[in-house]
Amino acid sequence: MQTRKLADNLGLEIAGLDTTAPLSRAQLDELASLFHEHLALVIRSPVLTPHQYVAFIRQLGEPDGSDTSRYHEPIDVDGFKGLRLVSNIEKDGRNVGQFGADEMGWHQDRWTDAAPPPATALHGVEVTKAGGRTGIASLAAAYDALPPELLARIAGRHIHFPLQVNDFEGALDEADIEDESLFRKVPLVQRHAVTGRKFLFLGARKILEYIDTAPRITGLDKQESADLLDAIYEHVARPEFAYLHQWQAGDILIWDNRTCAHRRESFDPDERRLLYGTPLVSSDLLWNGKAALAA
């Protein structure tokens, strides 16, 4: 493998890896080590078939096998129907995939899960000439650089994520944020179970322009929570914490979904874009079967 650092705080390019063949134990161990050190890996690859891509990813962990038919026609890979199609393409009046061409704000996948996916991977099948870049931000580097005033404001706090993502009517404004049937409560600052680094767990807030998931912070009302989250997100969005990926066909981008947030630039909806996506719901290789720890 040939490697090249992509940004100061995260991101490593890997070339020379045969993604169409089984990896050796030594290669897998090296990938895990590089993953923990750099948080996001860009593996240069030819465009893979769905079978080839799923076979490659399964060497790193178990992809989410949930049926995707509520979003698009699923692809059957020997009984596995969990391949996400991230695409703006339409065929015969139906979306080929999901998420369109709009800008998507910083978020972590499946943030309301009791154990969010330890990693997420995307594979570029059809990519745009411009726009559509994927940003990855290190929430560990962002935590390390928190100014003292902001660090004091979050000390000991928990973040409460509404399980109902779209609350357009404000039904949760006066709800008890300790109600586990309505909110998922997690420490705002957590510690990586493998590396020991502290990181911010932000989940999601404004994924799309018209959606604010309105998470709440322990001890703060809705407006106070929003003000604190504004300050945190403004800090996290600083360019020195991020790597912005310009897609090439065949790229496999895999990142630590718990220690990183990601976003997507908008792009021309007349350009075709298709990525295969696979959240890894478990990975003994990348997370040693462990969960994140409270800081």
Rank of each mutant, 00 (worst) to 15 (best):
A142C: 05
P116D: 02
A152Y: 02
G135I: 02
Q108W: 12
M104Y: 01
A119S: 15
I159V: 15
W106K: 06
L150I: 01
A114W: 05
G97T: 07
D144M: 04
K91R: 15
E149Y: 09
I136H: 03
P162N: 10
G132T: 10
W111Y: 15
D144R: 14
G97H: 10
G131W: 11
M104F: 01
E103K: 13
V125Y: 05
Q98N: 09
Q98T: 15
L83S: 12
F161Y: 14
G132R: 10
R157V: 03
R153C: 03
L146H: 01
L146W: 02
V127G: 12
L163D: 10
W106P: 03
I159P: 01
E103I: 01
V86P: 01
N166I: 10
K129R: 15
V127S: 09
P148T: 11
K91H: 13
R94H: 14
G132Y: 12
T134L: 09
V86N: 04
R110C: 12
D113A: 15
H158F: 09
E90S: 13
L146D: 00
G135N: 01
R110S: 15
R133P: 04
H160R: 07
G131I: 06
A141M: 07
N95C: 05
A155V: 00
A145V: 06
F161A: 06
V165W: 14
F161M: 04
G124P: 05
A152Q: 08
P148E: 09
G93Y: 13
D92Y: 07
Q164G: 04
P147S: 03
P117C: 14
T134Y: 06
L139K: 03
Q164Y: 10
M104Q: 12
V125S: 10
H123C: 08
F161W: 12
A130L: 09
V165A: 14
N166S: 07
G124L: 09
L151V: 02
Y143N: 02
P116I: 11
R133M: 12
D113W: 15
M104R: 00
Y143E: 08
I154N: 00
